[in-house]
Design a binder for these strands. Structure first.
Lengths: 118, 118
DNA sequence: CCAATTGTTCAATAACTTTTGAACTAAGGA
DNA sequence: TCCTTAGTTCAAAAGTTATTGAACAATTGG
């Protein structure tokens, strides 16, 4: 029931860099960073790609150690593995996210936030 | 006679990340960073790949805006575009290089330094 | 139980990337 | 001029990654 994740010391720099080198995945990471602490399910990213394709990209991110996916019912709650990434590659995630913010060419997740109680 | 390079504002984050995601290219960048200021010709990297393949990887780095190649006689002198990269993506190059230093899985350029005068 | 929701898997295809050797260009030195 | 050195280009082959639709599994709510 729990999905496979590398442990922190297995996270590889070239793999993380190439995984982040895809605009769709970079947009996912950027959105996760902007909502840090808030668990998000996969369908939050349907702006970026089809459901099938999203499954593929989210698996890449998870297998690279960039994200964690926790099974909650029929949902997979996705979070950034910030502590692990910061421990392994200090400053990397922050500089990537900061750079991504200023990049107008990157896709973005649309603003369809769910109203959290009236 | 001068090779094509993107200008600083044309350097793209996803392209830089995917270019750095290749272990051979990461090793090249790491070595360039360790010899910063010293112009190096392509053959300095023959430990990492064949001449033809090196030409391919060095072109990728140049086209991404990571390196500059200046034609000097029959040589191409390769340098890191640190100022441009730092301006565009502050902290990114430093964190990538710092992370690469601690990665035992990455290939490295061998220690065959030329004696600079007796 | 049934239907809807959430997300995965599979196989196919398309598209790109990497690697190779042979042939080539361009400059420099004898 | 001829030879060497430095590096590129080209076409082919091999390998990898991305994208798609159809079928599937698992949980939840009615």
């Amino acid at each position: 029931m729990t999905l496979p994740h590398p442990n922190a010391d297995q996270i590889s720099l070239p793999i993380v860099l190439s995984v982040l080198g895809d605009p769709t995945r970079l947009a996912i990471v950027r959105y996760l960073a902007s909502k840090e602490g808030v668990p998000l399910n996969c369908s939050r990213f349907l702006d970026l790609a089809s459901k099938t394709n999203l499954s593929y990209h989210l698996a890449k991110l998870r297998e690279a150690g960039v994200t964690r996916a926790d099974v909650v019912g029929t949902n997979r709650m996705i979070t950034l593995r910030r502590a692990d990434l910061d421990a392994r590659f200090p400053g990397l995630l922050d500089s990537v996210i900061a750079a991504a913010v200023h990049d107008p060419a990157l896709p973005a997740v649309g603003g369809h936030d769910i109203e959290v109680s009236a």
